[in-house]
Design a protein around this nucleic acid. Structure first.
Length: 672
DNA sequence: AGTGTATAT
């Protein structure tokens, strides 16, 4: 890990500071005592406190794995699980995968010797399907719980349930913010459960660890602004001309704003006049290809100041060294699910104070920094304290299916950390009922519901895939299901060449729609472009995404085989007479309809779509082949509202009659 | 008519 900026030994002193000097080392005894004494320990520690790397090692040395148990540490992101595991393995002096390992989807780097295991919280949830009480673990540490992701919230609820049956289990919840009290209160036993011997306060404890952050000076605007992109650009140039060295990190809400801001900065650089360093604006958002993202991590050239213009990705998911200045526009794009309409909405919302703090902290990682907030101090005080938990603004159908499969009897009265609005839960149950995954008492159906829950797919897609053998199109549907999980990342425009991307897309396009078009892409990739990044480049395809599709397809295939559904299975006798002579594309289209009947629409002469009830106008997403072509009835994979327009993505043509044939109950009411 | 914050199984 050479660093160009470092002279001499090439070592960065802070990185090599022995763990014993971390603030957390002083708390070691108190920590171990607390974990020994109380079932629940809440750790409040800022970035740099060493909590993630040190606590598992303390527990290991204190004997928490001496009976053969494992210490689990969950992370919200795959990258964190792998990198932290590598770091701890190095500190302990073992090979990764031996005493210290990690497990993420498609990668299990653990062995029989593994005592500390880092994994994503989503994967630990999956493990509960085979080990409901998580018996192999003596301690489960849930890291970054303050982010309130859907899976860490659910995980905490289930851990609380498990603890009643396993009093010896220890739960450590680690959080960077002030939510500690809420977490502790959540784990406290109900009044009637608390015996005299065990009062509420005996149940858990909060421990705070000081971080090693440098101070960040915060500046607010005196007056609010209406155009924060313009103001952000001005601030960038002001910092560049008046402040000392240090890169700039500018938070905006999305790709369009980022590109606008970069154009504006580039346009104004000549006006600065001579005598200043070079200013190098760089975009950062998840939609960029990996090589385009790499630029932001490279140290700037001599006499150059980087300006990284980023979405929320730089708030927690990605860390860039050398940032001295942060500019925070005060907004973020958040996904919201509208249970009434059954659509997701991507809307620009004010950030929470917790987010604003996290953004500011990005300036103080290596030295004292400054943060410029493009809003007034009084506006700051009116911001919500924390971001609305994901569980209160998501489509809950997948979660409810999973909880039901884990044996949760009543998903409405389930012990949520933050209760989702009942509308969300009701809508989820309705969806699952219409798909046949639960019965009219909201109980899991067998085998259909249980099988759907076993698959790592959204319920509608799981239903369609499980129906594939009935249409004799299992190999095709496996591919389509795998391609759907790429969520629109199949095509990329290399070097920003949009026209070339459109042209490449047309090459694979078929009149039946996007699903079969993506099937063609996958087939071409496997036969011609597999392990050939250059072929992908020529066809504007995302190599990494297609490799992932291959992994997903293989995983789905294995999972179905375990359910007794083999890829080569022939059409069941009862169906042969009906689907035997059909073309493969018709089988696939019918099969998709059995899962996505609720996502039906019909094209109007002007090229927009209408819902079956005619209540809303839907726009074809420009990534669809029907952006340029005509269609009649279609089903679509996804629906989302942005900028007051509802877009549908991944469309396939169907016959209206199929809706009634495959979903008679769902469409009966509207037919009359 | 012209597009998607981020993450996970």
């Amino acid at each position: 890990m050479a660093d160009d900026e470092d002279e001499g030994l090439g070592l960065i002193p802070e990185l090599y500071k022995p763990p014993a000097l971390l603030p957390i080392a002083q708390l070691k005894d108190a920590l171990l005592y607390t974990i020994e004494t109380y079932p629940v320990t809440i750790i409040v520690g800022e970035t740099g406190s060493g909590k993630t790397t040190q606590i598992p090692q303390f527990l290991l040395k204190a004997g928490w794995t001496s009976d053969g148990s494992v210490i689990a540490v969950t992370q919200p992101r795959r990258i964190a699980a792998t990198s932290v595991a590598a770091r701890v393995a190095e500190e302990i002096g073992c090979q990764l995968g031996q005493e210290v390992g990690y497990s993420i989807r498609f990668e299990d780097v653990t062995s029989a010797k593994t005592q500390i295991k880092f994994l994503t919280d989503g994967l630990l949830l999956r493990e509960m399907l085979v080990d409901p009480l998580l018996k192999r673990y003596s301690v489960v540490m849930v890291d970054e719980a303050h982010e309130r992701s859907l899976s860490s919230d659910i995980l905490l609820s289930l851990l609380k349930k498990i603890m009643r049956k396993r009093p010896e289990l220890r739960v450590v919840v680690s959080s960077a913010t002030i939510e500690a009290e809420k977490f502790l209160e959540f784990f406290a036993p109900e009044e009637e459960e608390a015996t005299n011997k065990q009062a509420k306060s005996d149940f858990g404890h909060i421990i705070s660890i000081e971080g090693r952050m440098h101070p960040v000076e915060i500046q607010y605007l005196a007056e609010p602004v209406s155009d924060y992109v313009e103001r952000a650009v001005q601030t960038v140039l002001d910092i560049h001309t008046t402040e000392e060295k240090g890169d700039i990190l500018l938070f905006l809400t999305g790709r369009e704003e980022i590109e606008d801001a970069i154009d504006m900065i580039t346009d104004r650089i000549p006006d600065l006049g001579p005598g200043y360093q070079t200013l190098q604006p760089l975009p950062l958002y998840a939609g960029l290809s990996t090589d385009q993202q790499m630029y932001v991590f490279q140290p700037a050239a001599e006499n150059t100041r980087k300006v990284i213009v980023s979405t929320n990705i730089a708030e927690a998911s990605v860390t860039i060294d050398g940032i001295g200045y942060v500019i925070d526009c005060g907004f973020v794009k958040l996904r919201n699910y509208d249970p009434g309409l059954g659509i997701e909405r991507l809307s620009v919302c004010p950030v929470s104070r917790a987010s604003a703090t996290q953004r500011a902290g990005r300036a103080g990682r290596t030295r004292p920094g400054k943060c410029f907030r493009l809003y007034t101090e009084s506006a700051y005080s009116t911001l919500p304290e924390t971001t609305f938990p994901e569980i209160q603004r998501s489509n809950l159908a997948p979660v409810i299916l999973q909880l039901t499969n884990l044996g949760i009897q009543n998903v409405v009265r389930f012990d949520y950390l933050s209760r989702p609005p009942s509308q969300l839960v009701i809508r989820a149950i309705d969806t699952l009922y219409s798909l046949g995954a639960v019965d009219d008492q909201a109980r899991l159906t067998k085998p259909l519901g249980a099988r759907m829950a076993d698959l790592p797919l959204e319920p509608m897609l799981a239903k369609a895939l499980l129906n594939a053998p009935n249409f004799g199109c299992l190999p095709e549907m496996l591919t389509i299901a795998a391609m759907m999980t790429l969520q629109g990342t199949t095509f990329v425009s290399h070097d920003g060449n949009k026209k070339q991307e459109d042209k490449a897309k047309r090459r694979f396009a078929v009149e039946e729609g996007d699903h079969i078009t993506l099937y063609n892409v996958y087939e071409a990739f496997v036969s011609q472009g597999k392990k050939d990044a250059q072929w992908c480049r020529e066809h504007s395809l995302n190599f990494k995404a297609l490799v992932k599709a291959m992994s997903v397809r293989k995983q789905l295939k294995n999972q179905l085989e375990r359910l007794g559904i083999a890829e080569t299975v022939s059409i069941p006798a009862a169906h042969v007479s009906r689907v035997g002579p059909m073309s493969m594309t018709e089988r696939v289209r019918r099969c998709l309809t059995t899962g996505f009947f609720a996502h039906a629409a019909r094209m109007k002469p002007d090229g927009t779509f209408q819902t079956p009830s005619g209540s809303a106008t839907l726009y074809v997403h420009p990534s669809s082949i029907f952006f340029h072509r005509k269609a009649d009835w279609v089903i679509y994979h996804e629906i989302m509202e942005t900028k007051n327009k509802i877009y549908i993505r991944d469309l396939t043509t169907i016959e209206m009659d199929w809706l009634v044939e495959y979903a008679p109950e769902y469409y009966r009411v509207r037919q009359r």
